[in-house]
Each structure stands twice: as structure tokens, then as C-alpha cells.
């Protein structure tokens, strides 16, 4: 998905760059002082309508796919509690005591079944980004002190998933990670 977005961006960027180059060259070739609009700030209804419709379609397609609505009507097969702290993740099948955070040594989750992560932080803001075995982000949420974010996901690919902190949280932010297995 990320590469599809990169491709979309590159195509649009190339089209925009091309338009600017063509417009610039057309100006360089022009030798008539009288050509050109006296006031370019005239109404440009059609341009804006096209832009508005394109963005409207994009919004209609994408908003229902927002993570808040994913698997909202299903019951999770597994619940994992996550407490993030500088610079560790504690994960447990049971609720975590914030005064004495203890988690499981290993977490195993079922493939193709709904898993709910209940994510919070014990100190500062952290990120909870799940990377697939091929090292692409598949899902993420934030870990915020005083709040619990519910992240629901179905893992299709079995293997070892890595969780990285994606919200800058201090000196050892870059090494804050954990793993779990999907079978």
C-alpha cells in the first residue's frame, strides 16, 4: 500500500512539474507584449470544481476505511494490554498494573482472527507501530498517558512482527521495540 501511495505521489508530482515547465517555456517563447490576462485573479470555477470533486471522491472512498471503523462490529478473539514506558513495551493478556507493570515473556496471536490492543503509556507519549515480517507498517496507534487507545487488527501473514515506538519519547526512542508472533 505504501508503494502505491508513493507511485500516486510521483505521478502527480511529475504532472505538476510538467505543467509548470510547459507554462514557463510558453512564456519564454511569447514575444507579444499584449498577450496575457490583465488580471489573472478572474474566476476559475471549472478548475476549482474539478479539484473539489476529485478531493470529494477521495474523501468518500477513504473515510470509511479509517482505523476507527475497522472491525467495529466484531468481537475480538484475543485482547492484548500494552503499557509503553521510557523505553520499553510491556504486553500482557491481562490488565497491567501501572504501579508494577508486568507482562508476558512472549505474545502469540492467532492469524486471521480479530485482535484488540489496549494501548496506554506510563510516562510520556509513545507510538505503537506494528511492522510486518517484511518490515512494513501494517497498523499503528499512539500510547498516551491517562488514555487507552483501542487498536483492532487481523493479521493475515504468520511470522514475527516488530513493534517500534513512532512518537519521539527521549534519548533511547530509536531502540524502543518489542516483538510478538502470529501463528
Amino acid at each position: 500500500m505504501q508503494y502505491a501511495l508513493l507511485l500516486l505521489f510521483l505521478v502527480l508530482a511529475a504532472v505538476i512539474a510538467l505543467v509548470f515547465i510547459i507554462v514557463y517555456l510558453s512564456s519564454k517563447k511569447s514575444d507579444d507584449e499584449l498577450k496575457g490576462m490583465a488580471n489573472p485573479l478572474q474566476k476559475r470555477f471549472w478548475f476549482l470544481l474539478i479539484l473539489f470533486v476529485c478531493l470529494g471522491i477521495f474523501a468518500l472512498i477513504t473515510i470509511p476505511r479509517s482505523p476507527y471503523y475497522l472491525f467495529a462490529k466484531e468481537q475480538p478473539a484475543k485482547v492484548v494490554h500494552v503499557a509503553a514506558g521510557q523505553f520499553f513495551f510491556t504486553m500482557s493478556y491481562k490488565a497491567i498494573n501501572p504501579d508494577k507493570p508486568e507482562g508476558e515473556m512472549t505474545i502469540e496471536l492467532p492469524a486471521n482472527q480479530l485482535v484488540e490492543f489496549r494501548v496506554t503509556s506510563l510516562d510520556v507519549n509513545h507510538g505503537f507501530a506494528i511492522y510486518s515480517p517484511s518490515k512494513q507498517i501494517v497498523a499503528q496507534t499512539q500510547a498516551m498517558p491517562g488514555y487507552v487507545n483501542l487498536l483492532r487488527w487481523k493479521f493475515e501473514e504468520p511470522g514475527t512482527y516488530t513493534v517500534h515506538c513512532l512518537e519521539y519519547c527521549g534519548m533511547a526512542h530509536q531502540v524502543m521495540q518489542t516483538t510478538f508472533t502470529v501463528k
Partner: peptide
């Protein structure tokens, strides 16, 4: 999305039509 419509839409199209086939002192 909508923030880009008035500012970017109007500005970008205005600059493009201001330059297109227009003799300009670059």
C-alpha cells in the same frame, strides 16, 4: 482537503494563467 482548495487552487491556477503564453520579464 478544503484548506488546499482556496489557497492552493486559486494561487496556483492564477500564477499559471498569469504566465502561460505571456511575455514576462523573468
Amino acid at each position: 482537503y478544503l484548506a488546499s482548495l482556496p489557497s492552493a487552487g486559486v494561487t496556483v491556477f492564477s500564477v499559471i494563467v498569469a504566465v502561460y503564453r505571456t511575455k514576462i520579464k523573468w
